[in-house]
Amino acid sequence: MTKLVDIQNLNVCFKGKRTVHALNDVSLAMEQGETLALLGESGSGKSVTLKTLLGLLPPKRTQIDGKIAVNGIDVMSLRGKALQRYRGGEVSMVFQEPALALDPVYTVGHQIAEAVMRHKGVNKAEAMSTALDMLDRVRIPSANRRLHTYPHELSGGMRQRVMIALALACRPRLLLADEPTTALDATVQIQILLLLRELQKEFGMGVIFVTHDIGVAVEISERIAVMYAGQIIEEGTTREIIRDARHPYTRGLLAANLHDVARGERLNAIPGAPPALEVRPESCPFAPRCPVAMAECRAALPPVFHPSDRRRVACLRAAEPIAAE
């Protein structure tokens, strides 16, 4: 079976007043129906990866090279109509701010039906019934009535449900979610996470979920890829990442989550801040902040270490037993 996502040696560089090497040699593979969390802090390249997958980056100011295949489709070669069919049909996206992503002048039902008509070529009545079905599936109470409401009449959680219904209306094989719960309240966030988990099972689609919150990643995903400075520095199953993180950055992030820190205890903070990526990293980008960095780490990019199948860590010291902290 073809891989759902196969990204090979992807490089993305933004040119402009300031050059930013946003992605540096990113490779990522996903099987059909998998849920992967892209975990990273601001500027780590996680959102850029999503945008590249959707072909959303402005071509004039962006230099992209590498290979991206989604379900066997070469994304970089898509143009015009084919690209439009791919977006929304094959792959769709849920954004962080549903208030901005939904069009305020059309009713919720109209927006979903419109997408269905465009991709499936069905008539308005059929599209509206699909829209109604989708609103039901995202567990919107009294969906029939909500079909004719405008986005501003809905609460934040309801709007995000509508956004998900819109994204899933054309049955994409891959759903991209860009921090869809960050703007929501805690009690609403968990509802949306559980909903996405159920829908993923129901539709059998693959999901890439971008987040900066490890807890959210644990709730949603089977696999986690940790990004830092435009690179994937560690990848594995959620269990492996949580129980046996190998990269010092991942371990730092886990500690910074404060889940099990006693009150008043000094936090083991990672010093410093991530690099600005004005130049392409030639050595381990985390080395300047790393508590266990060695001279070799500052000399060249670290080798990728594979402790097991589909598990990788980009760290020279990943094979060593972890020192007690």
Binding site: D185, T187, V188, L194, V218, T237, I242
Partner: peptide, 18 residues
């Protein structure tokens, strides 16, 4: 959110928005 992949939340504690 749970920090343990074996103890993920199964049931949302509250329905709807505040």
């Amino acid at each position: 959110p749970a920090m343990d992949p074996d103890e993920r939340t199964e049931e949302p504690p509250l329905a709807g928005d505040p």
